[in-house]
């Protein structure tokens, strides 16, 4: 009887001390960094690294190298030279790491914020977009200090591209019943000040990229019966160069562009691709959906390989599909929970 009780307690002790951590070593080669958002408030945001040469993947990279949990909702990853920026949205911070060791350089904390994406505009300044507060943070990443905030933005700022001396900021409609117009804002990089706002048709802009002619491309969603969704191409002066419209009910998103800036990729149920010279779209998909829950996409600027994530039920590890530039599936691998954003190191 006594022996049984002690065994019982020992079993409970062993069960109670179970650990879950799966550490990973730092990558030593060039490749693909993938931010895995994790679930809101679960604190399971992480970063994966994939080596295209060996097809090896390292998950839980940040904790594996730095010894502590990354945080809540790893929204995006961005690489500037040999520095990686991981935006941890619900932890109100940006972790700066060295590439490729992934060792932490510093933590940039932004209290009471909800940061989304990073764009480096020179060797000391990054811009960071924000979910709630209609602003863009201007941060000196050499010191980790927020230099200023640009407060004239709409309620939700998202992706950014730099064109000359201006940064174009995608502004999202946060309203559940948005209006039929969407906006972009521009920031003067020299002065770090708001420059101008531009209005376009469509209930939301779901991604912006810059092509090889310095034109801006927008993925335009529409809930309105009067406005068709599609892609809008803007000239350097922000005027509309051309629009490629889709049938009603389509919803282009996750707009990406290849390294040479001449081919666009986006989700619209399937993975789609068009040339920047095209005027019509949606012939045959680049890659069929195949019953997947497509969530994030990235295009390798050197090889042209396309990486797309299947978030499955959002509560398990995502599967990443890798295609060559012709849409031929090269392979797939498992990353973390809700893989959403890709950055490439070459």
């Amino acid at each position: 009887m006594k022996k049984a009780s002690v065994v019982f307690l020992l079993v409970l002790l062993i069960l109670g001390s179970c650990k879950k951590d799966k550490s990973s070593s730092a990558p030593v080669s060039k490749g693909v960094y993938i931010s895995n958002e994790g679930n809101f408030t679960f604190g399971n945001g992480e970063v994966s690294f994939y080596d295209p040469a060996t097809q090896q993947v390292s998950n839980n990279l940040f904790k594996g190298v730095n010894g502590y949990s990354l945080g809540d909702v790893a929204q995006s990853v961005y690489i500037k030279d040999s520095i990686g920026f991981i935006v941890v949205n619900n932890s109100q911070k940006i972790e700066m790491v060295r590439i490729p060791s992934f060792q932490k350089i510093r933590t940039i904390s932004i209290p009471n914020s909800s940061p989304r994406y990073v764009l480096a505009v020179n060797d000391s300044i990054i811009y960071v977009t924000e979910l709630y507060k209609g602003k863009v943070y201007v941060i000196n990443y050499q010191t980790g200090n927020v230099v200023k905030t640009i407060d004239q933005m709409a309620s939700w700022t998202e992706h950014m591209v730099q064109v000359g001396n201006y940064v174009v900021v995608e502004e999202r409609n946060a309203d559940a019943h948005p209006s039929a117009t969407s906006t972009l804002a521009t920031i003067n990089v020299s002065t770090n000040t708001f420059a101008q706002r531009y209005t376009y048709a469509g209930t939301n802009i779901n991604g912006i990229v810059k092509d090889n002619l310095n034109r801006i491309w927008l993925a335009v969603a529409s809930d309105s019966a009067n406005i068709r969704p599609g892609l809008t191409c803007l000239n350097g002066d922000m005027s509309v160069a051309k629009t490629i419209t889709f049938p009603y009910g389509h919803n282009p998103s996750n707009l990406c562009i290849n390294g040479s800036g001449d081919r666009l990729y986006f989700f619209d149920s399937d993975i789609e691709s068009i040339s920047v010279d095209d005027t019509v779209a949606l012939a045959a998909p680049f890659a069929a959906n195949g019953g997947r829950n497509l969530y994030g996409m990235g295009v390798d600027p050197v090889t042209g390989d396309v990486y797309a994530s299947d978030a499955l039920d959002y509560v398990q590890a995502s599967r990443i599909y890798r295609y060559d530039k012709n849409g031929v599936l090269i392979g797939s691998f498992i990353a973390g929970v809700i893989s959403g954003n890709f950055a490439f190191s070459h």
């Binding site: 409970l12 069960l15 109670g16 001390s17 179970c18 650990k19 879950k20 679930n39 679960f42 399971n44 039920d313 509560v315 398990q316 590890a317 929970v337």
Partner: peptide, 18 residues
């Protein structure tokens, strides 16, 4: 005593028991 619980549906992530 409460045993560990999984926090992902593929059972690859969990919280420790206590």
């Amino acid at each position: 005593f409460t045993g560990p619980v999984f926090t992902s549906t593929d059972n690859t992530q969990m919280l420790n028991g206590y």
